[in-house]
Design a protein around this nucleic acid. Structure first.
Lengths: 300, 300
DNA sequence: AAAATGTTTTTTCACGATAAAAGACATTAT
DNA sequence: ATAATGTCTTTTATCGTGAAAAAACATTTT
């Protein structure tokens, strides 16, 4: 099988959406930057669009013939990268329960179960190891450390150190820094969401990540910025599996964010510190309550 | 070629050293734990020892027949792991100069140059990426971020945050904690080294790592503990390539460590903080002076 | 019966091979 | 002359394969 053409399929799907907007497509290099793929992939896409009668393609002219229909799109599941597939599979097992700390992880078994080669699983595990949930025994298997209370506490401890620092750095940024405009935009998005929270509460997760990443970037420290990947990953799956009081939790969080934003704009370090602490405290609390008690017991 | 038997060769060499000490070897499982390898490897080792007339092996009896000679050992370079080989090769290129920030890294070329498969190089790069010196472009090449002044500053910033915390946690540990005994042992080693600094100054690097790791462990936070891997890696190569005033630097560092240890033992948080800061400041200074000025220039 | 040795099975590690995707070079159109 | 298209080359992503090493099972020894 070698390599799936998910890059092409995903770019093709995104390319279809462009057809709605124009009567003719731009040049190949332009399409390439637009969709974030190489010209090689663009040409494969154009070839198929021509084949299915979506466009007439002759050198520079790429005329749109018809609007894309739902069946023109490739199925969603064919557009995922292998590492996304493996990650999802792995996290499902991990959170489904029965994944006790100390349990060993078998590359071959995982690969067979997911239906992929061992190389991809190995590479995934290596990448995943920086999240602190698994550990490698030299010349041997991986060991699951478990999504425990201890893990959540260690994670949030670092998060708090880093975010308090970043927030202080943020507030100290000069008035003409472009981040203030970004913050204004985010503030507006928060206000909109606050109004429509009853129906759109699940849009919070994505907004949350963008907000915190903006703040962390003010640290100008790659280790702080990169650490947010760990947090984002944990919260991503956390949001997917802990749906209890989701609406209420998100409503509270949006309000906390708005207070946090106001504090940042005030540039008063004391206020920033207080607002940041308050929000992080409730974020930690939410995370902790979602961890099954079993996992909190001492591990043999 | 598939897989080299470096595990066996390395364990064999270490096993040879056991022959000097006893007249007969222990059981297979015992040897396994002693050398940190499986029984399968132990049996391969014993088989060779018998073949080369080092021991007489009959089931439980493994009698030593003669002392190992220098030519009984496998050559050092055959005992390295592939990832060690790749890491060394990679770091040599990186530090040899001509490795400008922004330069792209070619997996295939690296693999060919080192004479290994691409998979191993890929896995190395993924593991290495957490050190913050390289970055992956999706579906494409890796980009070198460069061993710049900025990198050193970001690294030391986090180090200082983490170590000050760990040191405070260390000092707060109860009197009956086993770490105090470990600290006493390290203190003694420092005293011995201080006395013999003229000839043994290059033994500092290893002692340094053990000392700081002991302190970081007091944080009881895996992210802090793991972060020391980044520092250890950088300092490991730093020590190898910056030999200027090595003796003087190490002499100063040993003295600072001793003051730091005394502060920890006093359990006076103010003293701990001061001693820790002082040492970290000079460590940062040493690292910064070793970075070529070219790397400090703004990158296009 | 506990622990060792002997034997077999499974897993990890590393490679070469191959399709997808990127990138480089050559040619043509504005 | 610049920027696009057309074509060819190189690199990345992934797999299957096989040897090294680990782990599991069976048998023997104390």
């Amino acid at each position: 099988m070698s390599k799936s053409n998910n890059v092409y399929k995903d770019a093709y799907n995104r390319g279809l959406r462009l057809l709605d907007e124009t009567k003719s497509l731009p040049s190949e290099p332009e399409l390439g930057t637009l969709l974030g793929v190489s010209r090689t992939t663009i040409r494969t896409i154009l070839a198929r669009m021509e084949e299915t009668g979506l466009i007439a393609w002759n050198k520079r002219s790429k005329t749109v013939l018809r609007a894309p229909r739902p069946d023109d799109f490739f199925p969603e599941e064919e557009t995922d990268t292998l590492s996304q597939i493996i990650e999802r599979s792995f996290m499902r097992r991990l959170l489904a329960g029965g994944a006790e700390a100390g349990m060993q992880i078998n590359e071959l078994e995982l690969a067979r179960e997911i239906g992929v080669g061992t190389t991809s699983v190995r590479e995934f595990l290596i990448r995943f190891s920086r999240f602190g949930l698994i550990e490698k025994r030299r010349n041997s298997h991986w060991v699951l450390k478990g999504f425990t209370r201890a893990f959540a506490l260690e994670l949030t401890e670092i998060r708090e150190i880093f975010e308090l620092r970043s927030a202080a750095a943020f507030a100290a940024l000069p008035q003409d820094s472009p981040v203030w405009a970004d913050l204004d935009l985010l503030e507006e998005e928060h206000r909109v969401l606050a109004r429509e929270i009853a129906t759109r509460f699940n849009a919070f997760s994505e907004l949350d990540e963008r907000f915190h990443r903006l703040i962390h970037r003010a640290s100008h420290n790659r280790f702080i910025v990169d650490f947010y990947d760990v947090i984002a990953m944990i919260f991503h799956y956390h949001y997917q599996w802990n749906k209890a009081q989701e609406r209420e939790r998100n409503e509270v969080a949006v309000a906390e964010h708005l207070a946090y934003i106001a504090a940042l704009k005030s540039r008063d370090l004391g206020k920033v510190d207080a607002a940041c602490r308050k929000h992080l405290k409730s974020a930690r609390h939410t995370l902790l309550t979602s961890i099954p008690d079993r996992a909190a017991l001492p591990q043999h």
